[in-house]
Design a protein around this nucleic acid. Sequence first.
DNA 1: ACCTGAACACCGTTCAAGT
DNA 2: ACCTGAACACCGTTCAAGT
Lengths: 242, 242
Amino acid sequence: MAKTTRGTPRREASLSREQIVEASIALLDSGGEGGLTFRALSERLATGPGALYWHVADKRDLLTAACDAIVARTLQAPSADATPEAALRALALGMFDAIDAHPWMGSALTGAPGELPIVRVVERIGQQVRALGVPDHEQWAAVAALLSYILGVAGQNAANTQLARVRGSVRSEFLDAVANAWSRLDADAYPFVRGMALQMRTHDDRMDFLAGIDLILHGLAARRAQAQPGPVSARKGAARKK
Amino acid sequence: MAKTTRGTPRREASLSREQIVEASIALLDSGGEGGLTFRALSERLATGPGALYWHVADKRDLLTAACDAIVARTLQAPSADATPEAALRALALGMFDAIDAHPWMGSALTGAPGELPIVRVVERIGQQVRALGVPDHEQWAAVAALLSYILGVAGQNAANTQLARVRGSVRSEFLDAVANAWSRLDADAYPFVRGMALQMRTHDDRMDFLAGIDLILHGLAARRAQAQPGPVSARKGAARKK
DNA sequence: ACCTGAACACCGTTCAAGT
DNA sequence: ACCTGAACACCGTTCAAGT
């Protein structure tokens, strides 16, 4: 690919925004949030730092673009042919896995409220919430709840991985250290946390995440059942096929 | 100010960690996340930057300590004398309001996983979840869901306020701008988001937040009802005394 | 024990100057 | 139109030196 021949400081092919974004993702994946630097990036792309500013507005813009590329890929598969509940679970899990693979997305997502990556996610969630039969005036609250929950988990996962990296260990070691510290807390002041320390480590984060999604979906279902009693199958029939 | 002319430099009273933390909070409240700087802080306290490192480990430590001071104050009121559901709602709202008043807490909380401020919150939530009658092996998932949701909303609120600040406007102006941009999105690609743009602005963030908490609480209640059918009041009797 | 403040090793961003 | 790279205005953190 693009062999920079000899003694040529000048790039032959001009820089593209997409190229910059891909290089940023690589830097972020290998070096964490601190790995993305205009200097490191420009070195990798064989340019000066200033050149990048022709294609991106600033660092936040760059981070958002990198995040959006991953989100777009993650959501590109069309919603499976199942119930809205199943689609929402799949959607949420897809985001969980993407963020798990690219922890820097955690802060990138919350750092870009209302921007393209968030819009993509909201649209997907919204369509399924609508298919679920949630009444119009409650749709936003439902979508916002799901989004907030997903971003909350994302942020925590990102922080765990990031902190582990800074301390030169891996995620699981870091979590073990936390569990350990918790189990040594004062029993009078923190009875619950102390008791939870062990259990916390045997749990699967991914399953915990899904349990939270299910809690919200459960809540939505319960709300609808009470708002409109009667044969549930009748009104859900269309969306429920499977 | 504090014209460090010649020879005055020495402080009369020695620095304390608490003093540093209070000054940090003031700086963060007035200047946002970017307002806390070792230089600004040392100037305000009439010392050199190096002096601070005698009392705090690093910037993250300082941020966590500042956050913890607020969390401790917020949770200091003992749980009200109501149902566990009501206590959880009050707890969540208390955190929402604290974070709304100190947006920098958003990133401080997620940036300090497993540390004191989080431990305090988890303990409080955990005690109420237990009082709710959630079975032992499901308590962690329930607590984690509530915590993740709260932190998710916190992160987004913080980002909104922070971004508005950077752009020299206020939160509501920023949100209006987002709603505006959303309403101009392509109708084919983003029908849901487009339709939601208006509704999003008329909603009350605080109420949306509470709706999400209720969704999770609803979900927990539904789960318990299906796990153990029969007269609910009977099995809740014991845990409910208080 | 605690504080000083210069120095170090970085940042993001700008901009005159080049092609 | 696009790129260069030095320069600017910051950071957090360290550390010899002071009291």
